[in-house]
């Protein structure tokens, strides 16, 4: 039997299944395959899942099932996991207005790396980023793929309030604030798109495994999209900027 997964209790109502010890697209795929495989079984007593970079947390009701019972059952699902096809991941375009009031730290980031503003924008908006996982805040994506050429330390003094939609850099990570929050990220731009909206279906713009592209837009386009978003016309599957 394949023993690459390790099952470890995490309290009396959850356990983790470790798929590896690294942050890599391969380990991430294993975690997602495992989640799809388990979820398809609709096992009674499982309440929730938290997939992360290298493990899957399974939350269960211990009055219905137990660790030994569940881990034995899930182990039997591991065979053939390598052959399981993951559904094609969505590529979601996130329009960003870079610099100015929308991205007050763009100039600082450019200066630190001796780049022009446009070079920072080009470097930030060229990769296709992988959404490894969500956490920290509702709808917040942990993205992989940023070019180290624009990796920038956090601000020495965090801001008291960063508005939702702000796009920032912290170390070698880039991310989007889904809700207003305090924080120390270097803010380089802002998107009118909502990553978390309880009144919308889907509530969350991204799912683990999705891919993301930042699309630079001008102020006019930013406002047009803001209006579409406010009117509920934004569709994550159809929305593409040519």
């Amino acid at each position: 039997m394949d023993q690459k997964f390790r099952y470890i209790p995490s309290g009396d109502s959850a356990f983790i299944i470790k798929a590896g010890d690294d942050i890599s697209p391969g380990t991430s795929q294993l975690v997602r395959k495992l989640l799809i495989r388990i979820e398809n079984e609709q096992i009674p007593g499982i309440i929730d899942y938290i997939p992360s970079y290298n493990e899957l947390m399974v939350c269960y009701n211990p009055l219905v099932t137990g660790f030994s019972e569940l881990s034995a059952r899930l182990r039997s699902l591991e065979t053939g996991l390598d052959n399981l096809e993951l559904p094609e991941s969505s590529v979601i375009h996130v329009p960003v207005l870079y610099g100015g009031d929308a991205g007050p730290d763009l100039a600082e980031v450019a200066q630190i790396h001796h780049l022009s503003l446009q070079e920072v924008i080009d470097i930030h908006s060229s990769p296709e980023y992988l959404v490894y996982m969500l956490g920290f805040m509702p709808g917040f994506c942990y993205l992989g793929g940023m070019d180290d050429a624009i990796a920038t330390p956090r601000k020495a003094t965090p801001r008291v309030n960063i508005p939702a939609g702000s796009v920032g850099i912290a170390g070698s990570q880039t991310g989007i604030y889904p809700i207003d929050s305090p924080g120390g990220w270097q803010l380089i731009g802002k998107t009118p798109v909502r990553l978390f909206d309880p009144d919308r279906e889907p509530v969350f713009l991204f799912r683990p495994g999705d891919r993301l592209r930042f699309i630079p837009v001008n102020e006019e386009k930013f406002h047009t999209i803001s209006i579409e978003v406010a009117q509920g016309k934004f569709d994550r599957n159809k929305y593409k900027i040519s």
């Binding site: 309290g11 109502s13 959850a14 942050i23 938290i50 992360s52 290298n54 939350c59 996982m133």
Partner: peptide
């Protein structure tokens, strides 16, 4: 650690 899930009472 590599960011990972948290259960109640962790």
């Amino acid at each position: 650690i590599i960011s990972a899930g948290i259960s109640p009472g962790t």
